[in-house]
């Protein structure tokens, strides 16, 4: 795996935090009261009716106000100037987010929870 990724920069939309043998994944929580959406200066970030917070990459100008606002650190810059974050990839990944599918330890789950 490490060899396959040699010289390839990856910009994951899910971040792993690690320290002293503890590790956990952080991705967008799709908050009920999303500070990133409320703070977005362009209107590029919206909460869809299905609850998913999505980015209109065409509108986003990369001001990073959402990075300033997100209490989880779940929004990050991307290569092309717009921001990126987990958008749940359920459409492209056949119903289950890829990270959930691919986690060998079953440590990431996809389920509805209260806030």
């Amino acid at each position: 795996m490490a060899r396959a990724l040699k010289d390839i920069k990856i910009k994951p939309r899910i971040r792993i935090e690690e320290k002293d043998g503890i590790s956990f994944a952080v991705s967008c929580r799709h908050c009920h009261e999303p500070l990133c959406v409320k703070g977005c200066i362009t209107g590029a970030l919206t909460k869809k009716e299905n609850g998913v917070i999505t980015i209109d990459r065409d509108k986003c100008i990369g001001c990073y106000t959402c990075i300033l606002c997100c209490p989880y650190g779940a929004v990050s810059p991307s290569e092309d100037g717009a921001i990126q974050k987990c958008e749940l990839c359920i459409k492209t990944a056949g119903g289950t987010p890829k990270c959930v599918d691919g986690c060998p330890n079953g440590a990431i789950v996809f389920e509805e929870r209260g806030e």
């Binding site: 320290k19 500070l35 990073y64 959402c66 990075i67 300033l68 606002c69 997100c70 209490p71 989880y72 650190g73 929004v75 990050s76 810059p77």
Partner: peptide, 24 residues
């Protein structure tokens, strides 16, 4: 500027610094 919002939240919420690993 990555993850700046975590700092913002500490200010916004008035989080007591002795309740977190401040050095980290």
């Amino acid at each position: 500027i990555e993850k700046a919002g975590i700092y913002t939240s500490l200010i916004r919420e008035g989080t007591p610094l002795d309740s977190i690993d401040f050095e980290l």
